[in-house]
Design a protein around this nucleic acid. Structure first.
Length: 569
RNA sequence: GGGCCCGUAGCGCAGUCUGGCUAGCGCACCGGCCUUUUAAGCCGGGUGUCGAGGGUUCGAAUCCCUCCGGGCCCGCCA
């Protein structure tokens, strides 16, 4: 059985007045401040509420530059956007969320894993070229963007995220950006003034907020816009600090996607075009004088619209290292689903405030995340006590962690730690169900309880093989590990024989069995450790393993009896 | 130079937005139990000037100001 435990998630703010202190508290204060049921609102709900005050149909944007693998740090963006949308609907509003792939940006660095070996050589030529125009390293994908973005996009549904997907390149090519671009070009002076407020080195007077695509070399990062007229921007391909230009001079038709607005202008232009009223973004944009600040001013003065309600968020680090798609320090959505349920990632994101740094470690720390999630679930179903205020918070976090609707009935869970043992032993599903029901981890399980159990077992199996320390891994030997068994002493064999007999004559609970081993050891004149060792040698071919009581009770009894018999021949 | 986050028990953290019960949780530690080991033995024990100083308040870990220390981000790419 699970060790009874409480976790720190249950602790915390207690909003009750000190009742015993009535005589110390002036009556007027009591009247004003004593609010035992004071509402503590989740930040997602606070955002949603603020949005509804402004307008009835908020549009929440999210997006990311497809510069490499899209990892769980990037997920904050779309998870928060979708979370706000959901909260809006729950408040009776009508939200719409989308995810925007910045796939028309130029590649400034070759991302992992394309920056290794031969590929690195090959991809050098694409520096400065828009991602969308770079080929995929794998023929199963259309191009660079498809290669990196598709696994992410296809995973979203599995995390309960329901957003519209936009492609920056498509929007430019469709001509939808033509008018905002024209507006920006017309007001280049005004924009320059705004940007210069935060620059120490002012932009040149002939600066234009546009990056043309060089028609000769295909690069976007290398051109300098010289002037514009009608639908055209004339440019020269001069090069940038990381890639040389080809020297070509030409004209780009900005109504046909032959270039794009520079980032700090593109962002507010997008707000205008898509009517964005809320947007989460990484802390890098949130800095004073950063792209949000200038975007706000440009939106107001040039595009005549309001900047979206900002939701800045911190980044996620992986085992203490800053996640980075270019360096390959990544953990992706498909990787997540191998070892953990999607609800856990939502929980991971929604349990703390957005600007609090998050740290993910797929190793042993994952066990704690599982336990914490299960505990919160128990609080939700009223099976574990928490203070009224904390309970309210945890329930909301639990709801936000759900892919869609919050389950009404209590969910039966297999503790993940236990799953890591069972997963290494079970032969088939029926076997697993037997073990789980006989150990009362599942009681009269519903179909969905069983599905959840198997999903968790499959995660546990993957986790053990990919992320667990070796000491947690074991494999029951299919045939008698003859060499190992040769090492057994006479008394050890005697102990095993007796154990086999005891097992066939009665049933043991795991704890009883564990205790029984000690008695047995004494009876045959062995130190307990010698008998434990013998058991592990016979079953695993090594001297240690999972706690014996648990271990044997998840194994097939007949198998254990016959194996012990074989070992003593 | 600017911004954000963090500083609470030996370690890792919750609680801070919305001030109010005796400041909590995990691990570690200490003492018992009947017994190898393992991030699933059991029971009992909190070991703390809530970074420092000032202010507001009946009341401050929580709000305000100043300072100190650590981390990250931005510094004109996006």
């Amino acid at each position: 059985m699970a060790r009874p435990r409480t976790l720190n998630v249950l602790e915390g703010g207690i909003s009750f007045m000190r009742l015993a202190g009535f005589n110390f508290i002036p009556a007027k204060i009591l009247r004003v401040q004593y609010k035992p049921t004071s509402v503590s609102m989740h930040w997602i709900d606070r955002v949603a509420k603020a949005l509804l005050k402004r307008d009835k149909k908020p549009v929440i944007a999210s997006g990311i530059s497809v510069s490499g693998n899209i990892h769980i740090g990037h997920c904050n963006d779309v998870f928060i956007a979708d979370g706000v949308r959901r909260a809006l609907e729950e408040l009776g509003g009508e939200g719409q969320a989308f995810w925007y792939a910045d796939d028309f940006d130029p590649m400034r660095r070759i991302p992992w894993p394309l920056n290794e070996g031969e590929l690195a050589e090959k991809y050098k030529q694409y520096l400065g070229i828009p991602y969308i125009n770079i080929p995929s390293p794998d023929p199963n994908y259309k191009n660079f963007v498809d290669f990196f973005a598709r696994p992410f996009i296809e995973s979203l549904d599995g995390f309960g995220i329901d957003v519209k997907i936009y492609s920056g390149a498509e929007i430019y090519r469709s001509g939808k950006m033509a008018e905002p671009t024209r507006t920006a070009l017309k007001h280049a002076d005004k924009i320059r003034t705004i940007l210069n407020r935060y620059r120490s080195k002012p932009l040149p007077e002939d600066w234009l907020p546009y990056d043309a695509l060089c028609e000769r070399c295909g690069r976007l990062a290398t051109t300098r816009s010289l002037s514009w007229h009608d639908n055209y921007v004339s440019y020269k391909c001069e090069g940038s600090d990381y890639v040389a230009g080809c020297g070509h001079e030409g004209e780009a038709d900005f109504t046909k996607g032959q270039g794009k607005l520079t980032w700090r202008v593109e962002w507010p232009a997008r707000w205008k075009l898509l009517g964005v009223t809320c947007e989460p973004f990484g802390k890098d944009h949130a800095v004073v004088g950063g792209s949000y600040d200038t975007g706000k001013l440009i939106a107001k003065q040039v595009f005549k619209c309001n900047a979206p309600y900002p939701v800045p968020y911190e980044w996620v680090s992986l085992k203490g290292r800053q996640m980075s798609s270019s360096k390959g320090v990544v953990f992706t959505l498909p990787q997540w689903l191998e070892i953990a349920e999607p609800e856990l990632l939502r929980y991971f994101i929604f349990r703390s405030k957005p600007m609090k740094a998050k740290e993910f470690d797929p190793g042993l720390a994952l066990l704690d995340l599982y336990d914490e999630y299960d505990l919160v679930e128990q609080v939700h179903f009223g099976l574990v006590e928490a203070s009224a205020r904390r309970k309210e918070q945890l329930k909301r976090i639990y709801q936000l962690s759900q892919l869609r609707k919050t389950p009404r009935r209590r969910v039966q869970r297999v503790p993940f730690r236990f799953a890591t043992v069972l997963a290494q032993v079970m032969r088939d599903e029926k076997y697993a169900i037997n073990v789980l029901t006989s150990r009362e981890m599942l009681t009269d399980p519903s179909k969905s309880d069983i599905e959840l159990a198997f999903r968790r077992l499959s995660c546990a199996r993957n986790w053990v093989s990919k992320y667990a320390p070796e000491r947690l891994q074991f494999k029951v030997a299919e045939t008698l590990p003859a060499e190992a068994v040769q090492l057994l002493s006479k008394q050890q064999k005697q102990g095993l024989t007796q154990l086999a007999a005891d097992l066939s004559s009665r049933d043991f609970t795991p704890v009883e069995l564990h205790n029984h081993i000690y008695e047995l050891a004494q009876r045959v004149g062995l130190k307990a450790s010698e008998l434990f060792k013998a058991i592990y040698l016979a079953l695993l071919g090594r001297e240690s393993g999972p706690r014996v009581g648990n271990f044997i009770s998840v194994l097939d009894k007949e198998f254990v009896i016959s194996r012990l018999g074989e070992a003593t021949l």
